[in-house]
Amino acid sequence: MKILIADDSRVMRQIVIRTLRQAGYDDHDIVEAEDGADALAKVSSEQPDLVLSDWNMPNMTGIECLQALRASGSAVPFGFVTSEGSAEMREKAANAGALFLIAKPFTEDTFKEHLDGVIA
């Protein structure tokens, strides 16, 4: 399985990768994107099986990326990993077609809770 991780923070991408491994998802291919525009391009070029994306990013936000993906006909499973976990953001994410929203700070248990069933 190929997982695309989009976050403008390199440190946070590493923390997401580390947490995936700690949660037991350690034998998957990881592709990194540094903003929403990069993620959009890499969904097309890399054909990931899952996108884990930050919300607030320069160039193109995570929600704009998701909306662009759905508008282009892509149904790639998409989840947010973001510091903003308010009810309002969760509703926006769900309405745009996100499977889940993991709020930062997260633990390996948070990842397991949201990703079991999504990652084979």
Binding site: S9, N56, T82, S83, E84, G85, S86, A103, K104, P105
Partner: peptide
């Protein structure tokens, strides 16, 4: 700051 700020915002 982003993580603390995001949770304060919430």
């Amino acid at each position: 700051a982003n993580v603390v700020g995001g949770n304060v915002k919430a």
